Amino acid sequence: MSLPKPVMRGLLGKRLRLHLPIAFALSLVAAVAFKYGVTEPRKQAYADFYKHYDAVKEFNSMKEAGVFESVQPSGE
C-alpha cells in the first residue's frame, strides 16, 4: 500500500481561488470594524471636547499658573 503522489500542477491557483476571497472579505470586515469601533468614537470624543472648549479661558489659566516663560501674569 503506497500513498498517492500529490498533485502539484495548478496547486497555487486552486489554493488562491479559495483563500483570496476569504482574505479580501476578512480585511474588509477588519477595516469596517476599525472604522466604526475606533475612528468614529474618537471623532465623536474630539467633537464633544471642542464643543465646550474655551481656548482663551485655558490660555488665561495657564498664564496665571506660570506655564509660559514669555508671558507675564496680568497682576504684574
Rank of each mutant, 00 (worst) to 15 (best):
S2K: 11
K5V: 09
V7I: 13
V7P: 01
V7Q: 09
M8C: 12
M8Y: 12
R9H: 10
G10F: 02
G13Y: 06
G13V: 11
R15F: 03
L16Q: 11
L16W: 05
R17D: 13
R17A: 13
H19R: 12
L20G: 02
L20E: 08
F24T: 01
A25C: 08
A25R: 04
A25K: 04
L26R: 11
L26N: 07
S27P: 02
S27H: 07
L28H: 01
V29D: 00
A31E: 05
V32H: 05
A33S: 14
A33R: 09
F34E: 05
K35I: 02
K35Q: 12
Y36G: 03
Y36Q: 04
T39E: 15
T39I: 13
E40K: 10
P41G: 01
K43A: 14
K43T: 08
K43W: 07
Q44I: 05
Y46A: 10
Y46M: 14
Y46V: 11
A47H: 06
D48E: 08
Y50N: 00
K51A: 03
H52F: 02
H52Y: 04
Y53V: 01
Y53M: 02
Y53F: 15
A55L: 08
V56K: 14
E58K: 15
F59R: 02
F59N: 00
N60I: 04
N60M: 15
S61G: 03
M62L: 15
E64C: 09
V67W: 07
V67S: 06
V67Q: 09
F68L: 07
V71R: 02
S74W: 12
E76Q: 08
